[in-house]
Structure formats: structure tokens, C-alpha cells
Simulated assay, not measured.
Amino acid sequence: MKPEDLSPEQQQALEAATFRRLLAHLDSRKDVQNIDLMNLAGFCRNCLSKWYVAAAEEGDIQLDYESVRARVYGMPYPEWKDKYQLEATSAQLNSFQQIMDKKD
């Protein structure tokens, strides 16, 4: 079977399961900093939170961003930040700036 052969319900269920697995994977890799994700993949946990809120809005659902961010981080963001977020190194910041400069 190919993905295009799935019913809309099957596709939605698989996409939801994939998203939950992505969140679980990110939760298990708290050592991976958001700036690392941004530099390597062009998105981070905060991006996922914003996409989640945007998808809800497309369905006329209003979600609180901080609540969504807690869902993505597995805890309130300030708590995650205090426990796991490190100060970005100059090399990380330089890489990020180069990526941003290429976008302009």
C-alpha cells in the first residue's frame, strides 16, 4: 500500500502518531538545543508549537500558545528552559546568523 492509498482517517491517524513520536523523541533528547535544531533542520520546538497553533486556527480552534508549547516541551517552557537550555555558543550563533543572512 502507498500513502496515497490511505483513507483520510488512516492518514490523519498515522500523521498524529508520527507527531506524538516526534515529541517523544525530542523529549528524550533534551540535550539537543533549539539552536542546534534551527541550524541543522531550520525548525525547533518553538516552531512546532507555532505550527500547532496555526493548524488549530485553520480549523477555527483558538489554542493558548503557552499551553501548546508546554505540550511540545513536555512541561511549561520556563521550567524546560531553566532545566535544559544552555547558553548558545558563539559558533552556534554564528551558524544561525549565516543561515538567516542567506534567507534575506
Rank of each mutant, 00 (worst) to 15 (best):
V32G: 08
H25A: 09
A16I: 08
E15Y: 05
R29M: 10
R29F: 08
C47S: 03
V32Y: 10
N39W: 02
N34Y: 04
C44T: 03
M38T: 10
D31G: 11
N46K: 12
T18V: 06
G42M: 00
L48I: 02
H25N: 14
E15T: 04
C47N: 09
L14N: 10
V32S: 09
N39L: 06
D27N: 09
F19K: 15
L23Y: 14
N34Q: 03
R29P: 00
L23H: 12
G42A: 00
V32I: 14
V32L: 12
A16W: 08
M38E: 15
R20S: 11
F43I: 02
D31S: 10
R29H: 12
G42K: 07
E15R: 14
H25P: 00
C44R: 02
E15M: 09
K30P: 05
D31Q: 06
A41V: 09
S28N: 11
C47E: 00
M38I: 10
A17Q: 06
A24N: 08
F43H: 06
M38R: 14
S28K: 05
V32D: 07
F19V: 06
N46Q: 14
A13Q: 13
R20A: 10
A41Y: 15
A24Q: 10
L22D: 04
L22V: 02
C44G: 07
T18W: 09
D31E: 12
R45M: 08
C44N: 09
D36A: 12
N34K: 04
Q33S: 06
N39G: 00
D36G: 10
C44L: 04
N39M: 05
R45F: 03
